[in-house]
Design a protein around this nucleic acid. Sequence first.
DNA 1: TCGATACGCAACCGTCGCGTTTCATAATGT
DNA 2: ACATTATGAAACGCGACGGTTGCGTATCGA
Lengths: 204, 204
Amino acid sequence: MMTRQMAEGAARAAGRPRSEKAEKSIIEATLEMIGEGIAVSELSIEGIASRAGVGKTTIYRRWSNKEDLVVDALATLKPPLPPLRGDSVRDDLVAYLTVIKDESRHSRTRCIMNIAMSDSDRHPRLAARFDELAIQPRRAVMAEVLRRGIERGELRPDLDVEMAMAILSGAMLWHTKWSHRSTDLPDDLAERIVDEALRGFRPR
Amino acid sequence: MMTRQMAEGAARAAGRPRSEKAEKSIIEATLEMIGEGIAVSELSIEGIASRAGVGKTTIYRRWSNKEDLVVDALATLKPPLPPLRGDSVRDDLVAYLTVIKDESRHSRTRCIMNIAMSDSDRHPRLAARFDELAIQPRRAVMAEVLRRGIERGELRPDLDVEMAMAILSGAMLWHTKWSHRSTDLPDDLAERIVDEALRGFRPR
DNA sequence: TCGATACGCAACCGTCGCGTTTCATAATGT
DNA sequence: ACATTATGAAACGCGACGGTTGCGTATCGA
């Protein structure tokens, strides 16, 4: 990865070892603050150190700047992908979008999304990392579901998989982003999106 | 509006009047900086004053804080709505989404979108203003197009207009947000989105 | 002409964060 | 024990910024 400061697995083994606990609390504090809606540019090393209960020195010994720290923090996120092995494309898609919807209720997820979408221009490394960790795996899962549906004959053979993904994910994104003005998302939102979209995806 | 400092239309009429030009350059400088990707929290009054070629005093005389200034700056944006009087729902929707797509190439629009989407939690007044100025009018136009299509029989009578808008706008949002990784959007993107979506919107 | 107000500019103080250094202390290998 | 390295705390100089004040000038109505 090369974002960390030296002393990764290397030889040196003299003196007091670095505290694993300190490292954990630093990362956790960073994620917490991001999850509270603090933008990357507003994150302060001092604030992180204070919340993590460590000295600034301990942070600077590991990361040379804020972005490196945030990149490593994001790297610890392993977004759990929903297991989808339903009996139909519809079930899989509903399950998938339901996970997305539920996640959007957690502020941590929402704020991380914000960072991914807004700070992407200013922090390309960060955006790339997020894309690699969170976006691509999910794209792959969804594409697989759709491709399976085509093979099974549930979906049109000429369906544009990329466009279908854009429609499904986009519709959910639209709701989580815009209609999240005070009001909660309806319970059956995933079903409604999928049913409306599938109408055009199925064979004639 | 009440965000401005006194002396709006009120009686007082002694002494040198406030410079309209200064006001313009302040607002313009603010919009420029926002358009360059500077987040609201990163905007500095000093930076705005410097770019606008005015003294800080001139800003503080008009707005008591940063958010008030940004709110007024956003208020000057009158996003030109595309004239849609096409002969079909498809034409209208393609025209509409094409405008959205083209706008997403201008950094000012993209950055303003970022602010609307990310800073909405932290600056509710700002988000509300943006919603009122940019989102709602466009929602209304699109809803009208779809409703007209239903009346004409081009679309299913039972079509969920809100959901249809989410699918169409969401698909475009998805592309402008995620696939804008270095690569440009295809010229026929609007057509492809509309054609794919309409497949499920038309009467059986 | 005169009073009032606005202007740009510069200086000011207080705050905050950065990145560094120093310090006494804690934890490890030999 | 001893050398070595890490730790949290505190303080440092530095620069950016907020918000205020004063200065000399410009522009208005009366």
